[in-house]
Design a protein around this nucleic acid. Structure first.
Lengths: 339, 339
DNA sequence: GTGCGCAACGGTACCGGTAACGGAAATTTC
DNA sequence: GAAATTTCCGTTACCGGTACCGTTGCGCAC
């Protein structure tokens, strides 16, 4: 039976003290090489396995890094997590995550639970937590990084880009293409505050240029290609003369493309479809889709690195606000940059 | 300053013992309602936040549940994690994950690190760990669930389906459609053991029916729509008469569809494309794609539930092998079942 | 031979909670 | 009104490590 073997057992079997055994296992100094070897050998024989819980309690810190995301079905957050993984690979840190489902209440409980693990750092999505959650984040001694959004004030550190500007930028790009009749399709706008910001930026920019009438098709269901397809059909049925549609993300826009292909609507001649995220998939579509490329992976990596460097420079409290670049493209299949 | 407030502080401020404070905070019995209220009030005032690390050490168990997946860029594993999340929502359990990148060495280290957290359970992908890792899994006192695959023997519990039969089933379906010239396109076959099993099942079934010549296009890069598109082009260039192609997953098959659309190859009249997973996306494609629907979410849920029930029934060690149904469809857009 | 420095190891006291048991006051029972 | 419960709370002893400081033994210089 493994599992019950404790460091004391190893120490006893090796004829040394717990302390020496501990040092030997960790590769700390003040132990002779042969003792290290003997202890490790015995540990292997006995099937000893360290106990992170005890170790963490003893030195008052864990190597856990908490990640709070709103959803996992959205590939974007998987990519953020990949970036985090990349950055902490080899550092011995371990990510643990929680999913809020865009629910502030659940987010609060999650953050609380995570902090009670005394994590080495916390990465949470967005800047729009409710006040309780915000307090927790600010009171936290562990470094906190809010990601994906820079429209607002961060509790500690922040890595992302302006969602509002992203929406505005796409509006400008579409206007520059000579489009006149704009529409909008969005999902989960009751919860997804970043999608709301993008829409607001989009509408604001259109208004500035004199485009007041912008029919919208919205839904509270979660984003999907199927939803995009259906909602595009509805929007076009009511407003057949639209020549540009902005979607709250690429998934919906892809659905729009599929609808147009089935209905033989020429894309982009008659109608430009614009999504958001710059998913790999859109670059392979048979028709051009406009999108905004965002580097989710880099955001994850930067966030994790911010936590790491905070640890390296103990005591420093530089707020850090990192804005990662985004790129609006009119045809995701080409690499040329518009605007 | 929060963060340094300990249970002892709360107890002192409330004029009770640590033990009573502990009970009050946890809602354990043997405390009068008014004491509970007072303690909680003071805890809130002081900004007390529990310490999971200490609690876990004291009662020798954590509420962490480890999840080991090969990749996050594959939406399939996100969905599995969603399923896990669903099942443990409200139980106070916390998932923490690690990504192997299909690397056995990394997998070993990950499992080791996870077990040293004394998790409430461990969910790992696949049955083909290397021998060291397998030993760890078998020696673990924490319940272990291996998921996604049933072709092999489980270390403890297992939830999934036969990858081999999945491949064979699709071969049979394509044969039943009257196809004669079969091809195969796959990625990451040097690492993804489940994809290998599917291919083997596919080829074996074809061989049984007398189809010996099956040209293959493979690559070690990771699966993507773009890769599927490119590899389809290459395969068809060399073998233009193929009338059915099986891909190692839906991503590649989607790429195949896009290639065919651009080249005006009639799908499915001239060429049937078959993927694997039954992603939502394929149901929205403008052309039919054959696929095998798998319930990733259910697998995650079932795995998490298996761990929960193991905890409920302390001591029981039912091995549990749960096979979840899969469904081969010739056109993902329809719900009718083939075969 | 004495004193000194350094390498290697051990003892003790925690880290912040919780299980188990015990005991006194309040309540019920007959 | 005494005995038997029940209710509520405290004491003690850990959980399995690690930090801190002290101790031992040995080689070396004088």
């Amino acid at each position: 039976m493994h599992s019950k073997v404790t460091l004391a057992d190893v120490a006893a079997a090796a004829g040394v003290s717990k302390m020496t055994a501990s040092r030997a296992m960790r590769g700390a100094k003040d132990v002779s090489p042969k003792t290290v070897e003997r202890v490790r050998e015995i540990a292997a024989e006995l099937g000893y396995m360290g106990n992170h819980v005890a170790a963490s309690l003893a030195n008052n810190r864990t190597d856990l890094i908490g990640v709070v995301v709103p959803s996992l079905s959205n590939i974007v957050f998987s990519e953020v997590m990949s970036g985090i993984e990349d950055a902490i690979a080899g550092t011995g840190l371990q990510p643990f995550f929680g999913v809020t489902g865009y629910d502030p209440e659940r987010e609060y409980l999650l953050v609380r639970q995570m902090l009670s693990w005394r994590p080495a750092g916390l990465i949470v999505t967005g800047l729009d937590q409710d006040s309780q959650t915000r307090e927790l984040l600010q009171a936290s001694t562990a470094p906190v990084v809010q990601i994906m959004d820079t429209d607002g004030t961060a509790a500690d550190m922040c890595v992302g880009f302006s969602q509002r500007e992203a929406g505005a930028g796409m509006a400008d790009l579409l206007i520059a293409q000579g489009r006149k009749q704009f529409g909008y399709v969005g999902c989960a706008l009751d919860r997804d505050t970043r999608a709301i910001k993008r829409r607001d930026g989009y509408l604001e920019s259109l208004t500035k240029s004199g485009f007041i009438q912008v029919p919208q098709q919205t839904s509270t269901e979660r984003s999907s290609v199927a939803a995009g397809k259906a909602m595009t059909a509805e929007l076009l049925a009511a407003h057949p003369t639209l020549d540009a549609i902005y979607y709250s993300n690429d998934d919906l826009a892809i659905g729009g493309v599929f609808h147009c292909m089935e209905q033989s609507i020429p894309v982009p001649e008659q109608l430009i479809l614009a999504g958001f995220n710059g998913l790999d998939l859109v670059a392979s579509l048979p028709a051009p889709v406009a999108t905004t490329r965002t580097s989710r992976r880099d955001i994850g990596t930067a966030a994790a690195k911010a936590i790491l460097s905070r640890h390296a420079a103990e005591g420093s409290n530089d707020p850090l606000l990192k804005t990662v670049p985004i790129q609006h493209v009119i045809d995701a299949r080409r690499t040329f940059t518009a605007k």
